[in-house]
Design a protein around this nucleic acid. Structure first.
Lengths: 236, 236
DNA sequence: TCTCCATATCGTCGGAGTGACGATAACGGA
DNA sequence: TCCGTTATCGTCACTCCGACGATATGGAGA
């Protein structure tokens, strides 16, 4: 059997998302080496011998964020292997999506690079390699997952209020949601959130009930993001 | 920078689905070489130097099915790279999903192996490598895509009838659908199918109107598969 | 204490979507 | 002509949803 096929290095890149100050943010590092030295990039690293993809993603996440013992759900998003995407040679990268609650600080410096939260905007961010594209794909993936999975609770520290959960949806989808309808829908999905029985007082307003994640792995009925496909009201 | 990372070969495996005789079927080949010689497997091959993933998937599809000029939509499903998944060494594979109308014959023998359509059952099929898992993931992917994308039309040759499209949904989802409600929903989604104005007579029954694919890239409202989460009627 | 404000939570109402299923249409064949 | 079969349209009750009014409950300030 011929062995004439090209060989590759395989990297795992992480799209770590959180919500900070009501805005969606992504964990970025500053590249310390060529290529793209000094440019922001997604954290990631190479797959090691004997290591599976998910293990590598979890290892990189721990190294970049300093998180230990926490196992956030990591979801594979897509794989990119275009020739020329890495000037060093043939490198394929598998992108993973991770969702974290708003941490005090990314605990940078654990590894080689400086990590920081950067707001996710609508346009490109000038990231290294093809990381703009990877980020966009991952964000779109997260937006879809919010609709029919309990992923949004991964953005929140427990216990959380309905308003905090609503803030997650608003930040990720980039839309404003009606607090009353949102409350009705979230509390109406079986197994999505469970009341702890406690309340939390904010600097203003009526105290809010606290919730924890429920056992549901899929949301039914789903929380659909607003669609614009209105029937184009007949002018006149 | 150290270059001590493991190197890999990267393969592209295809999950080519169609509907034959009202049942979901997948294109399988019989392996002609070790490992897993003689075992059925998904068609696929190695990524070549200078080739991108999608190009490799399209090339393999053309080689295995003999299709030329046709560009069915190929969708990346997931990537698998567990150590030991390929006895020959470290091989990562990127799975692609392709949907075809029921072809007369897979036009086997174009490449090295014998290709055939095999029905997709609920259980494992004893495929080589981790292809049982890949197939299951891809089928679940297709089931989801039927809900909110026009993917189902890719199973049909144009023009097609509503009943043929319904047969696709029934085969892929494995459920029976009410013909009247299905007709109402499919023709009610803007841009999903467009009437050609022609009719097709079957050996029996009233002739059916013929349709072609519409311009919609997403279905709204979606055609949701039946959910079982009924409110558990109170026994009493 | 009373008023005001902000947020949380509950209710109401009309419209859209859906599943169950009846009714009718339009063929081929007995 | 009658019948079986499939296609297509209609009806009805129920759910879900978005818009939005009403009420609850805290803190801040008069």
């Amino acid at each position: 059997m011929s062995r004439a096929h090209a060989t590759f290095e395989i990297a795992v890149d992480l799209v770590v998302l959180t919500v900070r100050d009501g805005r969606l943010a992504v964990l970025l590092i500053e590249r310390g080496n060529e290529p793209f030295r000094g440019r922001p990039a997604l954290p990631g690293g190479f797959l090691r011998a004997g290591e599976d993809l998910l293990d590598a993603a979890a290892r990189e996440l721990a190294e970049e964020t300093g998180l230990r013992g926490i196992t956030p759900d990591l979801r594979q998003v897509a794989t990119y292997a275009a020739p020329g995407r890495d000037p060093r040679g043939r490198v394929a990268t598998v992108a993973y999506l991770a969702i974290l609650p708003d941490l005090p600080v990314p605990t940078a410096g654990t590894d080689a690079a400086i990590a920081r939260w950067a707001p996710v905007g609508p346009g490109p961010d000038g990231l290294a390699f093809d990381h703009d594209r990877i980020l966009a794909d991952a964000v779109e993936h997260a937006r879809r997952l919010l609709e029919d999975t309990p992923l949004a609770t991964a953005f929140c520290r427990e216990p959380f209020t309905v308003a905090e959960l609503r803030g997650v949806y608003e930040a990720v989808w980039g839309v404003a949601l009606d607090p009353r309808n949102f409350h009705r829908k979230v509390t109406g999905v079986p197994g999505y959130v469970e009341p702890t029985g406690d309340l939390r007082s904010l600097p203003t307003g009526r105290p809010a009930a606290l919730f924890r994640r429920g056992p549901a792995e899929a949301l039914y009925p789903p929380l659909q993001r607003p669609r614009r496909s209105l029937p184009a009201p007949q002018g006149d």
